[in-house]
Design a protein around this nucleic acid. Structure first.
Lengths: 230, 230
DNA sequence: CTCCTCGAGATTGTGTGCAAACCTAGAGGT
DNA sequence: ACCTCTAGGTTTGCACACAATCTCGAGGAG
């Protein structure tokens, strides 16, 4: 029998989904009354939800000025990747001894399906890749069975970024990323934690490079726009 | 001109101090009305403060049942040390290129004072050691200039644990710990990030060993008490 | 033309009341 | 002796009202 959720918890979950799903873009204003009406509750639980989301880093609250969906500078994004490049390889290494053959098979299936939808060509479907990628990484984190590291990682990874990042992979980087997943499966099957750790380190470094390049492009576009309007 | 703090922020700061300072022991009940009276505000800001402390991991909230100061199992404590053993060496390595000679001198002074008050003998004063240790580590984290890693670390380190841990150092471990501080200063002066990283890794491993031993002792004591009362 | 001042409106911060959920203790049945 | 159920008091969850603060634009001084 599952306990009925409180209003504040529903508000929290709904807002989180809205932000992570991209319906609420970074920088969007989050008025308390507006959200309260939208969710059918009073401002009190909305405030509580916003407060907790702020602690998660998904929204930013300025005293007396309200909340906005968090935005990130390039430097902050690089910081997040620094953190991931330390935590995820460690978690992956932890996962190795815990992975049963059945677990490895499931990860293998995910990696194969990512190849199917991710390989450039007629069958490519990048939108399908995002949830598969997420499932793969979540599965690995779960196998690590290390709540503290997992929590620290979850606090750092902001899915809107990952999602956006995925759409900016160039062909070579995307192929590398897909190959990494398969190679992690191989390392798991071999029971070699150092191998798995090394691949995951490469995987994050690759993602980081994609992110930095995309950020540079966005910045150049913005400069162009500003000069145009000047 | 510094903005006057809101009631919720005062409540948050006060509660955090009470918990970190040890006035509110782990497991202590945190009734909203009691805290509200104690802080001279209504329940609303208290609720907000508790909610944020819960997000920080310092208190645990059970729906409809109220808040308590967080407690940690040995496994959770070991998890925290796993996280620290990954993050702190990384932060320390980052700090090396940023440290000016003046910074190194300040850290050196802290390390020397820790030796003075920490060395077993007539001048020993373990209570003075705690703030010095904290100052040393905080200074290092600040030098790393890496907000993301620093935030992840701050979220994991619960000062009540560190404090309690310090009082359980045996003589050999304490000497090692003090020596580590001096050696980190030497690595900074030499400008060698890998040296600094290695020392910090040892430092955390040493602290972890002390924690595990202390936890075993506490567990044995508890078993003894339960058998006694049975 | 630029900068400052000052309201009106909107938005957040806090106090308070009430309903619902929870804990405790004790009566009664098995 | 043990379990079940219930009544009471206690505590939290939520809504609402009012106070405090901010935003933004109009108007005037320099």
């Amino acid at each position: 029998m599952t306990r009925p959720l409180t209003s504040a918890e529903r508000a929290l979950a709904t807002l989180r989904d809205l932000i992570m799903g991209g319906e609420l873009a970074p920088g969007a204003r989050l008025g308390e009354v507006e959200l309260a009406e939208r969710l059918g509750v009073s401002r009190t639980p909305v405030r509580e939800a916003l407060s907790r989301l702020a602690a998660e880093g998904l929204v930013e609250i300025a005293p007396n000025r309200g909340a906005r969906v968090a935005t990130w500078t390039v430097a902050e994004l690089e910081g997040v990747f620094d953190l991931r490049s330390v935590l995820e390889p460690q978690l992956t290494a932890h996962a190795v001894p815990n992975a049963t053959p059945a677990d490895v098979d499931e990860l293998d299936a995910l990696a194969r399906r990512m190849h199917e939808v991710g390989t450039p060509g007629p069958g490519q479907d990048l939108d399908a890749l995002v949830p598969l990628n997420r499932a793969f990484h979540d599965r690995l984190v779960a196998l690590a069975a290390h709540p503290t590291l997992a929590t620290a990682l979850a606090a750092a990874i902001h899915p809107p970024i990952v999602r956006r990042n995925f759409l900016t992979y160039d062909e070579a980087s995307l192929r590398r990323s897909l190959a990494h997943h398969s190679e992690i499966v191989a390392a798991l099957r071999a029971g070699d934690p150092e191998w798995a750790r090394a691949v995951m380190t490469s995987h994050i470094a690759n993602a980081r490079a994609v992110m930095v390049r995309a950020a540079r492009v966005r910045m150049a576009e913005q400069v162009a726009r500003e000069e145009e309007s000047a």
